[in-house]
Simulated assay, not measured.
Amino acid sequence: MGSVWLIGLMTICDMPEIREKSNEYKILKNYIVWAMIALGYPKNPGVLPEQRRSGGYYVGETKSEL
């Protein structure tokens, strides 16, 4: 399964196109969407990329493992 964080949505959540989509998902007008995540399986099999260590934190790790 692949995933990607879509951050920075709080700066565009009141744009008409974005608000229209928010309304479709029944997100209240006074709510601010800060981020979203897209999850899915690849259409075709591929090669997993090497895990990067650029200061990120991976779920399930402790600081001693970093």
Rank of each mutant, 00 (worst) to 15 (best):
K26W: 03
S54L: 13
P45Q: 13
M36W: 13
I32S: 05
S54M: 15
E20W: 08
P45D: 10
S3I: 02
E65C: 03
G8A: 01
M36N: 11
E17Q: 10
D14H: 08
E65A: 05
A38S: 14
D14M: 05
M10I: 14
Y31C: 06
G2A: 14
C13R: 02
K43Y: 11
P45L: 03
Y41F: 12
T11H: 10
K26Q: 09
Y58C: 01
A38Q: 15
P16W: 09
V4E: 04
G60V: 01
W5M: 11
V47N: 09
I37Q: 13
N23P: 01
K21H: 05
K21F: 09
R19T: 05
K29Y: 07
C13I: 03
K63L: 06
Y58T: 11
W34N: 15
T62E: 13
T62L: 11
I37G: 04
Y58R: 05
G60K: 05
N44F: 14
S54Q: 14
E20F: 05
Y57C: 04
K63H: 03
E24Q: 12
T11K: 12
V47F: 04
A38K: 08
E61I: 01
N30W: 15
G56V: 05
M15D: 14
G40D: 10
P45S: 13
S3C: 06
I12Q: 08
